[in-house]
């Protein structure tokens, strides 16, 4: 479904992604693992074209996304949940969802606000609250719900477990499983190996903008040296 091919991305002069390649297949949940600064967020931004890769291709459903404006990437069916949430703090929950709303898309689950309220009951209670009056966990749920309103085929979740209470993290894991059951393809970036193992089918480990491991969690268990070298556990 998504295939990142030898992508090089930069921030100014800093070379962040160094020929990174990987694939995400329809229906799976993939965890992108790596330390702080390994290039996880940049990978997601390079898919979204929020950071424009200097070299390489980002193929989605057979089309190269490199050079497209971000809104076209979103319209082609990729939903993006940024690490820092970026909810619209002056807008209410309902209005935040409205910004994300896009027409139904063939082959993707078609979300209604009611369905999303079933998954995120807190949002229903707070539907008329402004974003700035919500807790970190609620904001995290809102930002996921907002992206789902676009009926994406592929969901990119940047560090969904970061900075929220442990009980919410549990809830988040359940949510991701629900999304997978609905037929969504998901890629999460994580530092929390435990969380990743709980939700993902496959792990990709990057370091210095290069891929160091790509395989199942069972294979990763079998190679503790990789875990020790590239993940801070």
């Amino acid at each position: 479904m998504l295939s990142v091919e030898a992508v090089h991305s930069y921030y100014g002069k800093a070379h962040i992604l160094d020929g990174l390649s990987f694939e995400v297949r329809r229906g799976e949940v993939v965890a992108l693992l790596g330390r702080n600064g390994a290039g996880k967020s940049t990978t997601m931004k390079s898919v979204m074209q929020l950071v424009r890769p200097r070299q390489g291709r980002v193929m989605f459903q057979g089309a190269d996304l490199v050079g497209e404006p971000s809104y076209r990437v979103a319209k082609s069916g990729i939903g993006y949940v940024p690490e820092d949430r970026r909810i619209f703090t002056d807008l209410t929950v309902m209005e935040n969802l409205e910004v994300g709303r896009q027409p139904a898309r063939k082959g993707a689950p078609d979300w209604t606000i009611e369905q999303l309220f079933d998954i995120f009951p807190n949002l229903k209670e707070r539907r008329t609250n402004r974003g700035k009056h919500m807790s970190g966990g609620e904001q995290q749920m809102l930002t996921i719900a907002r992206t789902l309103m676009g009926n994406p085929l592929l969901l990119l979740l940047d560090e969904p477990s970061e900075g929220i209470a442990p009980v919410i993290v549990e809830q988040m894991a359940e949510t991701i499983k629900t999304l997978k059951a609905e037929g969504l393809t998901v890629m999460i970036s994580e530092q929390n190996l435990h969380f990743a193992r709980a939700v993902a089918d496959r792990a990709i480990i990057i370091e210095g903008g290069e891929k160091k491991f790509d395989g199942s969690f069972a294979e990763l268990e079998a190679q503790p040296e990789i875990r020790d070298a590239y993940l801070s556990v």
Partner: peptide
């Protein structure tokens, strides 16, 4: 209106509005 919601959202963070599939141009 939806236009108004998008305008207010863009006032705060236009890049994010774009990443949600709205053609900012």
């Amino acid at each position: 209106t939806r236009l108004g919601v998008l305008v207010r959202a863009a006032t705060q963070d236009r890049e994010m509005v774009g990443a949600l599939g709205v053609n900012q141009a």
